[in-house]
Nucleic acid binder design. Sequence first.
DNA 1: CGCGATCCATAGATAGCATTGATGGATGTT
DNA 2: AACATCCATCAATGCTATCTATGGATCGCG
Lengths: 290, 290
Amino acid sequence: MLSLVHLKVLAAVSRHGSVTEAARQLHYSQPSVSHHLARLEAATGVKLVQRVGRGIRLTPEGVLLANRAAEIVGRVDAASTELAAHVDLRAGRVRLAANASALSTIVPKATAALARAHPGLQLSLFDRHPDDSARMLRHGEIDVALAFRPKDSVNDEEDGLRRVHVGEDSIYLISTRPDDSLANHRDSAWIGGCERCLAELNAACGRVGFVPRIASHSDDMVVVQALVAAGAGVTTLPGLALRAHRHPGVHAAEIVGSRREIYAATYGDPPDPPAVAAVLDALSTAAATL
Amino acid sequence: MLSLVHLKVLAAVSRHGSVTEAARQLHYSQPSVSHHLARLEAATGVKLVQRVGRGIRLTPEGVLLANRAAEIVGRVDAASTELAAHVDLRAGRVRLAANASALSTIVPKATAALARAHPGLQLSLFDRHPDDSARMLRHGEIDVALAFRPKDSVNDEEDGLRRVHVGEDSIYLISTRPDDSLANHRDSAWIGGCERCLAELNAACGRVGFVPRIASHSDDMVVVQALVAAGAGVTTLPGLALRAHRHPGVHAAEIVGSRREIYAATYGDPPDPPAVAAVLDALSTAAATL
DNA sequence: CGCGATCCATAGATAGCATTGATGGATGTT
DNA sequence: AACATCCATCAATGCTATCTATGGATCGCG
């Protein structure tokens, strides 16, 4: 039975046309490579290399076996990769950060599906605003960030994140009046959320022609609804948040022209590890069934 | 880098579902196989087998890798086989026996072609009658027998030889008269050749209604033509013999209804070694271009 | 042409791996 | 409960892998 190391060495010598260069590339000493070739010749009973001047050249048989060797080594590497991927799905861990509205709706659904398909797969969850999530992603603290941005925003790849579309969401005006609209609240006290929520709010009000007066801040969907119901102000919330929690004393009116794209972001070169890919899949599927 | 022996062992354990049985089949001791599995688990970092009762079972990862392992080992075997075949064609030796008419015509042409295509291939040639050739073939003294039989003979595979059609040849009446025929020689002195030639002669005369009187014997195409030219009798010769040697004092008249099939025979299970296959090819090609 | 650089093969030393027989622990069958 | 079967582990021994050192051959340059 031949040896994979021998075959790998032969393929490298064939590729570089030099024992010394192959040794360098494989992090072996030159005599080691020489020895491997000798043992492969002994194992096959065939002369595979011949001296030519100071160097060597492969015999026709050597070329033939080197080609096959490269294939075989490639197969072995593919098998190792496949095995690692398989393990990743059975016992891997994925760290996911998402904002509260997604974390309360999409993520539980995705988590349930992942638990069924890959029982050994661990999911670590973090409640984070989109900008925090992006920072953590780039710092290697998480593997996936579930976030949102205006639906019509320019595809901005400069931050190095790779994004996968997960779904969409509407933004709602939250007040005590049914069938309300932004225009009715030019002078109202507004309750602002996270930075990206504020940007959304300013853009929506700007489209109606005014700048909202932010009187208080909270990014907790329960808190802001309670404040609205108590008459402390008005705010906006995404549909996902309303799915997760709906105070009986507030009304929601969809703001036309303000929609969010929900996306999942990863960092680093593709392909994603199988476990990460499985999470991305689960998130998209979950969002599609809400 | 994984080891081919380890992979082969895993594949065998997977196939037999037992460490002890795999060991038996691979001619290893059981602890050796156990050790190989342990080292493969260490190399991959993945648990591949688990104890179940008295025996073992492969994990899903183990099954996955065992399947890939079987492929890879198959690839390596194929590469070894291919390499051996390549060597065979470059430096192999083939022993060929043929009757004189074929040895003088088809074989030189085939030999020339083989020398061009496979310069290192050696050909050993033996001048033998068909029955001798068949015996040598079965005894392993030669690799290929080039022989003939009546064209309409029953395909007789009982002798264990494998036959490949090479070509056909006509039989000619050799006498001193132009446009002669068998019927003119009911009472002539005939010169007989080898046993199979005699059988051919008797069959041909039998079809015209007489039994030829054999007055002398020689299977040398030069000798029999010289005897005919000297008036010592008449004989038959195949077209191939006449291509190789033609005495100016004799005439040849084709005997209608008497044709030979020329075939090349080998012995043993297919596939033929590459060198033998190359010789068979060369013989067929040579016969086709005569 | 002489010298130094380059390249590969071989030798010897050492560590790691492969294989065996022996043994122990767990499981299954009677 | 006793015995058979199966696998894992241990210890001893031989084989392989890898290195540094060395030698021989070739190449390129002054």
